[in-house]
Design a protein around this nucleic acid. Structure first.
Length: 266
DNA sequence: GGGTGATGCTGAG
DNA sequence: TCAGCCTCACCCC
């Protein structure tokens, strides 16, 4: 479930489980065999999350770059780990924990130049740089594309994916069709705040829950049942939780997006 | 057991 | 703009 909140959560949990120790590294699938052989037995210094990217720093000076893409998944075991499957691209283990990685789009060692290139082609990450709201607003003001498309562009803001783009636009009352460069300063600032708080909540909870408890009649976010955790995502044809109007669906930036025409007027 | 779609992104044309 | 890639949960038969 890889939007930015997942990546930051994985960085935090894996850092706690693995960093500061020499690790056993191998590639059961074999597709990262050379990189794994190079890292095996080295100490992991730190893990950094950058938008949807993870950077693992090793005492050898090497940097491992992982991007989960749409399908990539981590599995962590604290005790009695099952053997990895033949789909496991990367396995990392110490005496306390084992982390398996399967299905990533990217799992490779990168040079400092590669890393510079990565940093220049992604925009501000609300979880890593919470005070970068002005850069975000500036990025929006330079793009004549719908805001619904702009939020998926990782050069504008890093870490937002298809669920959060629909949900944060709903929470801000902004129609996805509105041109990014037409948002005024207060819209951009409200959007940045909501993106930050929602990603943070997702990082903490380990799942995406955007609805306020009041809207589904329970006391706390953690009591919200799975099918009621979102306002609009994949809810086309069903009544809006706020106003009762029909949630609509359209395609934007090659992905489907959902919105409420009453709560998010054009 | 097969088909499908998914919280992502790139490169060819 | 579109095909392609990575994997698996879920649906339907």
């Amino acid at each position: 479930m890889p939007e930015g909140h997942t990546i930051h959560r994985q960085a935090r949990l894996q850092r706690a489980a693995l960093a500061g120790e020499r690790l056993r590294i191998w590639s059961p699938q074999g597709r990262f065999a050379a990189g794994a052989a190079r890292l095996d037995g080295r100490e992991l210094d730190d893990i950094e999350a950058l938008g949807k990217h993870l950077l693992y720093r090793w005492d050898s000076g090497d940097t491992l770059h992982v991007h989960l893409g749409l399908f990539g998944k981590f599995k962590t075991f604290k005790s009695d780990p099952p053997p990895p499957t033949e789909m496991t691209r990367l396995a990392m283990a110490n005496h306390r924990a084992v982390v398996y990685l399967a299905g990533p789009t990217i799992c490779e060692l990168i040079t400092p130049e590669d890393e510079d290139g990565l940093r220049t082609r992604i925009g501000p990450d609300p979880l890593a740089e919470p005070r970068a709201g002005r850069r975000f607003a500036g990025n929006l003001s330079r793009r004549r594309i719908p805001i619904g498309a702009a939020l998926l562009d990782q050069q504008i803001v890093a870490g937002v994916g298809n669920v959060y783009r629909a949900e944060v636009l709903f929470k801000c009352g902004i129609a996805p069709q509105r041109p990014a460069d037409q948002l005024d300063g207060s819209d951009a600032s409200a959007l940045w705040s909501i993106i930050k708080s929602e990603l943070r909540a997702g990082e903490t909870a380990g799942r995406i829950v955007t609805v306020g408890p009041n809207d589904v009649g329970v006391r706390a976010r953690k009591d919200i049942p799975p099918q009621e955790r979102l306002y609009v995502y994949k809810r086309d044809g069903r009544p809006c939780r706020r106003c009762g109007d029909m949630v609509l669906r359209t395609e934007m930036a090659n992905r489907l997006i959902w919105w409420c025409p009453t709560c998010q007027p054009c």
